[in-house]
C-alpha cells in the first residue's frame, strides 16, 4: 500500500497489450489499438457497425505474435442473438488469405506452432449466450475462473451490454447490477491485462424540454466506463464514423471507417 507511483503506472501502460482495430487512424489515436486496463464501450444505433467491430476484434486478437499480434483467444458474450458464425467465417477466411498473400506460405515458422487458419480463428472464439441479465451476471462472474484456467484469453466482448440490463425497472437495482458487473470486468482487465469491449444502444431522453438521442443506461453508467466510442452511419457517403466521445487521455475526435466484406478498414 502507498508504494505504486505514477511512474510505475506509466511503465505498465506502455507494456499493456493492445488490439488493433485495422482502422489505422483510430489505432493511432488510441495509441496502438484498444488497450487492456480499461473498459471500452462502442455505442450506436442499429446497423452502425458495433457488432461488426466486435467480430473484427475477435479476429484481430488472434493475430500471430510474429507480426506483432497477441495470438490469444476471445470470449464472446452474446445477449441479443446478433452473433453470426457465417460472418465470422467470412472474415476469418479473408484474413487467412490476406496473411498468406502478405507473408507467403513458408514464412510461418512451423516450430512456433503459429497456426493461423480460418478454423483456428473460429476455434479461438468462446461463445456464450446469455438470454437475460441473471445469465449475464452468472457468465461474468464465471469469467475470472475461465481466465485463470486459460491464460490465453485476452479479449472479452459483451454484445450488447445494455440489452438485458435495460429491462430492469427499478433504477437503484439497475445501477447496482451495472456497477457490480463493470467492477468485476474492471478488476479482470487490471489483474490479467484483458481487453474488455462492451456495446450499448442509443435511446431518447427528455432533457431541457426536448427529446434528445443519447446512449442508454444513463449518466451513472457513462461515468464508470473509461472509453466511449460512438459509431454512426453516413448514408450518402457509404462510410461510418467513430467518435471518441469519452477518453482519459485524448480529446474528442471523429474518424471515418468502412465495413467491407473482409472487415473493418480505415479510409486512406
Amino acid at each position: 500500500m502507498l508504494k505504486t507511483t505514477c511512474f510505475d503506472i506509466w511503465r505498465q501502460e506502455i507494456e499493456t497489450p493492445r488490439i488493433v482495430t485495422l482502422c489505422k487512424e483510430l489505432d493511432d489515436k488510441l495509441g496502438g489499438g484498444i488497450a487492456a486496463g480499461f473498459i471500452t464501450e462502442f455505442c450506436g444505433g442499429p446497423g452502425c457497425g458495433k457488432t461488426q467491430m466486435c467480430f473484427q476484434l475477435c479476429i484481430n486478437v488472434q493475430f500471430p505474435k510474429c507480426i506483432g499480434g497477441l495470438q490469444s483467444k476471445a470470449i464472446y458474450l452474446d445477449t441479443n442473438q446478433d452473433f453470426s458464425p457465417t460472418r465470422i467465417l467470412e472474415l476469418a477466411v479473408s484474413t487467412e488469405k490476406r496473411f498468406q498473400r502478405l507473408l507467403g506460405k513458408n514464412s510461418f515458422d512451423p516450430s512456433s506452432k503459429c497456426d493461423f487458419t480460418a478454423n483456428s480463428i473460429l476455434a479461438g472464439i468462446n461463445y456464450i449466450y446469455c438470454e437475460n441479465y441473471l445469465m449475464l451476471q452468472t457468465a461474468v462472474e464465471n469469467i475470472p475462473e475461465m481466465v485463470r484456467k486459460d491464460k490465453d484469453i485476452k479479449l472479452i466482448v459483451i454484445d450488447s451490454f445494455s440489452f438485458p440490463i435495460r429491462v430492469i425497472e427499478e433504477v437503484a437495482e439497475r445501477t447496482g447490477i451495472t456497477y457490480n458487473l463493470l467492477t468485476i470486468l474492471q478488476h479482470l482487465t487490471m489483474e490479467y491485462k484483458i481487453v474488455v469491449v462492451i456495446t450499448n444502444e442509443l435511446t431518447t431522453r427528455f432533457n431541457d424540454n426536448e427529446w434528445k438521442i443519447c446512449p442508454a443506461l444513463g449518466d451513472s453508467h457513462a461515468h464508470k466506463i473509461n472509453h466511449r466510442i460512438i459509431v454512426s452511419k453516413c448514408n450518402e457517403q457509404k462510410y461510418y464514423m467513430a467518435l471518441v466521445e469519452k477518453s482519459n487521455m485524448m480529446p474528442q475526435v471523429a474518424i471515418p471507417f468502412v465495413i467491407k466484406h473482409n472487415g473493418i478498414r480505415g479510409i486512406s
Binding site: 511512474f7 503506472i9 506509466w10 487490471m190 482519459n248 487521455m249
Partner: peptide, 27 residues
C-alpha cells in the same frame, strides 16, 4: 475506476518541455 493514466501525465509534462530526469522525479 482505472481512469488514472500515466501516459496522460507524461504527455502533460512533455508538452510543458519538462526535462526527462525531472519528469521521472515528478512522477
Amino acid at each position: 475506476k482505472c481512469d488514472f493514466s500515466g501516459t496522460r501525465i507524461m504527455e502533460i509534462l512533455r508538452c510543458r518541455n519538462v526535462p526527462n530526469d525531472e519528469c521521472g522525479h515528478l512522477m
